[in-house]
Each structure stands twice: as C-alpha cells, then as structure tokens.
Computed example of a mutant assay.
Amino acid sequence: MPTLDPVDVGEHVCWIVDPAQGYMAATSTFLADGELFGDKVVIVGSLREPSPSVSPPRDAVVVDPRLIRGTGPTLDMGSMLGLVRREADRAGRQGYRALRVLAVMDQLVPPDAGADMLIDHELRMDEFVADRAAIMVCAYGRDRFGAATLDHVACVHPNELGSRWTGPSFRMFNSGPGSWSVCGVVDADGAAAFSAALTAAAVLSPALRLRFDELELMDAAGMRALAEVAARAPVRSITVEGANPTVRSCWEMLGYGSYEAPVELTP
C-alpha cells in the first residue's frame, strides 16, 4: 500500500512512519476523506507536527493519550479498544458512514512494552474492525520502535504502509468470528511472532479456526509453534482449514497428528 488514500471501511493498516517523511505527508488526505465520505474521525494522540495545511475535520474527536495510557508504567490498551467501540456506537447513532481512527502509537506505548503485548492489542483491534463499520490506521514511528517489534506488529495487520525491515513474511488477520487467516510463509524467522499471535487469538476464542488457503509454506518451526500453543493455551480446539497437502503431510510426518494438542488439519 503506497499511500493511505485508498484505505476503506473494514481495513486495518499498520503505518510505519519514516522520520524523514513524518506524519503530515500521508495524513492530510486520510483525514479529509473523513469529511468527504461522511466518517466520524477519531485521532488518538496528536499529529506531532503542527501544520496549517493539515488539521482535523471540524467534528473530529482528538483524544489525549494520557486518557488511554495513564501516568503509570502499565499499558492499558483495553481502554483504547473500549474508546473506539464507544465512538463506533455513537457514530452509528449520529448517522456517520463509519468510524475512521488514526492512532499515533508512539504516544500510546510506554518504552517497556514488548512485541507480544502489542500483537495481542492489534489482533483485538483487527477483530473490532472486521466486525464494525470502521477504518483503523495504527501509526508506528520507525525511530521510536525497534526493527524486531515493527516486524512482529506488521504481521498482524492485513495491510501496511511504509517499507519495513526484512522479517517474518506472514500475515495473520481476522476473517470472521473466531476465525483468523494466515497467509505467506511461516518459517523459523516468524515462528516467535506466529506463536504470539496464536496465543493472543486463542484467548479471544476457545474454539479457534485458522484459514490456511493463502499460506504458501509452513516449516517445522511454524508447526512446532502451532502445536505448542495448542497444548498450553486456554483453547478447546484449533481447526486448521484449507491446509494444502504438503502442510498436512509434514504435520503427520512430524508426529503432530497423534500429538495431545487439540489441532485438526482439514483440506
């Protein structure tokens, strides 16, 4: 995704902001489209760079990050999810087409927040966007977050703006109630991020469904991550749908077909 211009209802975007580009270059059209299409605009955090050419729409809701994060070290991203849910409900009653959210994550995430915590938050936001008339753009400053964190966070967004470092080459995103699509390649480089994403998704749904229709490859490390999460997570079952013959054969060859973890692979 080269710009935010084509972002539409139902999309959840990870925007990795380059310090040289800044927020202004990609923000103006995204905000202006809120008024153009009749969306309610919510900005969580400031745009950091005051500019007369970029200002929030007249009816935009601008949220002080301290209302979300508080003043202590604890990251309470559940408050952010609660806020956007309430604004989505209001937007529907007020006659808006959708809720259009820009979250400046630089101002929301404390320095000690780990990638696993952010993955959990982003999957919850993705589930929200898939279920409501909403657009969600999560902006992460490249100079604020490390390469590994950005790679892990980008994996749990269906769309991405801004090139990232070479890292995990899969994506996992919501595809319906209790269902998550996994596409790309899950290998040793992405096994840790995949494990964190599965763990977070298992908390959201005790009967978890994974769609592998667009999965190109899963190596032994990815399969081990799936089996280990299934064994330890609070989940009754994990059903993998759309697994290709190679994935199913390797799963059996590695002995996971008779493993105690409640995982079932289907064509």
Rank of each mutant, 00 (worst) to 15 (best):
L161G: 01
A188C: 01
T27R: 06
S28D: 10
A91P: 02
F30E: 03
E160D: 02
P110Y: 07
P2M: 04
F128K: 11
R224S: 14
A201S: 15
D213F: 15
V62C: 13
A115N: 02
A134D: 01
A32C: 00
W251M: 04
E49I: 02
I119W: 11
R232G: 02
P65G: 02
Y96V: 01
E127P: 00
L254K: 01
P65W: 01
R236E: 15
S195K: 10
V13L: 01
Y23E: 09
G176P: 06
L215S: 09
V101D: 04
Y259V: 00
E35P: 01
E260M: 05
L99N: 03
F128L: 11
V62A: 11
S163A: 15
D112N: 13
A103S: 09
R248P: 10
M172N: 10
L75D: 05
L208T: 11
A148I: 14
E11H: 14
L123D: 09
A134L: 06
E87P: 07
G162R: 08
A220Q: 10
R236C: 10
L75G: 00
A200G: 05
W15N: 06
G114P: 02
E127H: 11
E241L: 13
R93Y: 04
A191I: 08
T71E: 12
T199S: 14
G82E: 12
R69V: 07
E260L: 09
V101A: 05
M172A: 13
C14M: 06
D59H: 08
V235E: 10
S79P: 00
V263I: 15
D126F: 06
E87C: 10
L102Q: 06
A26H: 06
A191T: 09
M77S: 14
F30R: 01
Q21R: 15
A200D: 04
P73K: 10
I238Y: 11
P267D: 14
I119S: 08
E260S: 13
D59G: 01
G190L: 08
A147T: 13
V41M: 12
P267L: 08
E241N: 04
R86A: 14
D116M: 06
P177L: 05
V109I: 13
P262E: 01
D33C: 07
L67G: 14
T29E: 10
S53K: 05
